[in-house]
Nucleic acid binder design. Structure first.
Length: 599
RNA sequence: GCCGCCGUAGUUCAAUGGAUAGAAUAGGAGUUUCCUAAACUUUAGAUGCAGGUUCGAUUCCUGCCGGGGGCACCA
């Protein structure tokens, strides 16, 4: 079935053929929505057609409009303003559209991705400290993108890589051993990731003191850093870990276990879930095999000291180290292996890494190397690079204690939702469990929306004051718009009204502008969905949901649904409300946000 | 130094090269015997600077100014 835009383009092509005898492609006929201040539903910008020397834009618009009306009688009337041809479709056409949309099981789905597999890797935390605000943005983006791809027909694997080894985790282990208290999450009543994080911070403080003392003795900053007892201790721990020292491995397993359990809790609260976990400790060694492969293919080269490099200067980049002279791997080495691993597991056509923009260079290098190695998946690699989350006071820094903790922030948002809900007092009759669920929906929803409504490429300035606001451009605004549709449907059902609109049923009144506008927006759902997938941009869905909610509220205030004078109008508005509700719920679902039926 | 990113109302965000640059928030004025006022209506307020391409530039190109980021045998 052709989309309305396609029908219009077809009509325009036929009209141009018969009026001017010229052949144009649909691409030359960019229809867009008519702006509110003009009359019409769809607008064609005529200017590009002036290249055919057919006359002034106004003349072309006029003649084209006339020709299109002949081709498509549903064009009720049209007007030409400067070079813009505004077309208005008949009420009957829009009613028929609503009728068909109600029957359409794929109203909110696309099929472009069918038969293709995509791996989306996101979150990917270190196991030495808890999740923070930056991770939240990452998770919301990754989760949402996964849903969006799935709704476009792709088979999606959500993956999370735990950076679970190396100097960072050694730091926490060392501080824990040094404290000698044998603290556990159970003994201290502290969430596992928080406990490990505390030791990580403690390590930093101790090391800093040691360095200061050494500097006071006359050492340089650099020497002091190397000579500090803490520094030596973590080197030792890391080496013992790599050699499989039973004690170190056992402690490592225990502490990481605390962290996994704790993060799982946080994921659950966020509604995030992964199909597959990867662990750096499992794969870091096999990166060396890929390095070997590159050497054999002559793509990498080895220096006299034994270190391995790749020369990317022909591609405008630098020489990049892949293996240290002592044969140990660097950061990028494990990623070489992980890419192969994912392909072995899923044979994906596309592999997306949701990682902050500070690592753009890293991924540029990684993808280029994959290309040079001739990996079958190389062309499908993509770095979804997003901007950092900053505080009004600047960047978040663990060492300076300015990090906004993920769990704390969720708690704050939920209590803010509770406060606001109680203030409004509209939840009479809800059980304690239902209320808690509602507060979580609203609070977590507001948080997620705050993070996903901004274009991923842009940095986010996190203002705590603004973020807990539940009015305006927020999830609760959209959620409350949904509850309006739900409330109307409940009442309608109680009164025996049905939202089913038979296409032939014509309301007595003319369609309102807000009704046309809503129908047009429903029609665009799939366009937005496709666009969001193609550009890896969930914020498009977020903004769509907001615009739709706003338009629905406008309609709600000016048009009575149940109390409408005419039954036919009531039925139509009920059908429209039902679909708007579904569209709101579905677009929020794509963002990882759920809706309540009452609030 | 080199490489990339970003500069839009007081503030936070929008705008496939298209009409008079949209919202939210903060400020001014209103709306509730009416399906949930977390709402609606209304008012005021912005494209860093200078050029260029174009019928048309917030968008593309060049230079300048301003702000992050990256360029480790760190991860």
């Amino acid at each position: 079935m052709p989309t309305p835009i396609e029908s219009l383009q077809e009509a325009a092509i036929a009209a141009l053929k018969s009026q001017y005898n010229i052949e144009v492609s649909p691409a030359e006929l960019p229809f867009q929505d008519t702006r509110r201040e003009f009359e019409g539903d769809f607008t064609l910008v005529v200017f590009p057609l002036t290249k055919y020397k057919l006359g002034s834009p106004e003349q072309i618009g006029q003649k084209l409009g006339e020709g299109m009306q002949i081709q498509m009688p549903d064009i009720e009337r049209f007007n030409v303003v400067k070079g813009f041809l505004n077309l208005r479709l008949s009420d009957a056409w829009w009613l028929a559209y609503l009728g068909s949309a109600q029957q359409d099981p794929t109203l909110f789905r696309n099929t472009a991705g069918e038969g293709h597999t995509v791996v989306v890797e996101y979150c990917s935390p270190n196991t030495n400290k808890p999740l923070h605000l930056g991770h939240l943005r990452n998770i919301v983006l990754g989760y949402s993108l996964s849903q969006i791809l799935e709704s476009n027909g792709y088979k999606v694997i959500q993956a999370c890589l735990f950076n679970d080894r190396g100097t960072n985790i050694s730091k926490s282990m060392h501080a824990w051993l040094k404290a000698g208290t044998g603290d556990t999450p159970e003994s201290t009543g502290t969430k596992g990731d928080k406990l490990v994080g505390e030791y990580y911070v403690r390590f930093g403080k101790d090391q800093k003191q040691e360095i200061a003392a050494l500097v006071a003795e006359g050492k340089t900053e650099e020497q002091a850093e190397q000579l500090a007892p803490s520094s030596l201790a973590i080197q030792d721990l890391t080496i013992r870990w790599e050699n499989g020292d039973a004690d170190v491995r056992s402690l490592w397993k225990t502490m990481n276990g605390w962290v996994y359990a704790a993060m799982e809790q946080t994921f659950r609260r966020l509604g995030a879930h992964f199909d597959r976990y990867y662990f750096e400790s499992d794969i870091y060694l096999s990166g060396k095999e890929t390095v070997q492969e590159g050497l054999e293919k002559g793509i990498f080269y080895q220096k006299e000291d034994g270190s391995v490099w790749v020369d990317l200067s022909p591609d405008g980049l630098d020489h990049k180290l892949l293996l240290r002279r002592d044969g140990t791997s660097v950061y990028i080495t494990q990623d070489l292996a992980l890419a192969d691993e994912k392909y072995r597991d899923y044979q994906m056509g596309r592999s997306i890494h949701v990682v902050g923009n500070e690592q753009e260079y890293h991924f540029k290098v990684l993808f280029l190397i994959m290309q040079k190695l001739g990996k079958p998946f190389a062309s499908g690699l993509f770095h979804l690079s997003y901007g950092m989350v900053e505080l009004p006071t600047g960047k978040m820094k663990t060492r300076e204690g300015t990090v906004v903790d993920a769990d704390d922030l969720m708690d704050l948002m939920i209590s803010s939702a509770r406060e606001e809900t109680l203030k409004l007092g509209k939840t009479e009759g809800m059980s304690e469990t239902e209320l808690e669920e509602l507060y979580a929906r609203l609070g977590i929803g507001a948080l997620k929306y705050y993070l996903v409504k901004v274009d991923p490429k842009k940095r986010i300035l996190f203002d705590p004051q603004e973020s807990i606001d539940l009015h305006g451009h927020t999830a609760p605004f959209i959620q409350s718009s949904y509850t309006r549709t739900a409330s109307i449907l409940r009442k309608a059902e109680a009164e025996g009204l049905t939202p089913q609109v038979s296409p032939g049923l014509k309301p007595e009144d003319e369609l309102l502008e807000s009704e046309r506008s809503l129908l047009r927006m429903l029609m665009h759902f799939r366009d937005v969905l496709a666009d969001a997938a193609q550009t890896y941009n969930p914020s498009l869905v977020a903004n769509y949901a907001y615009e739709l909610a706003k338009e629905y509220n406008r309609f709600y205030h000016e048009a009575p649904v149940i109390r409408s004078a005419h039954p036919a109008t009531s039925a139509f508005r009920l059908g429209l409300s039902t679909l708007c509700g579904k569209a709101l719920r579905e677009s929020l679902r794509l963002l990882g946000i759920t809706v309540p039926e009452r609030m």
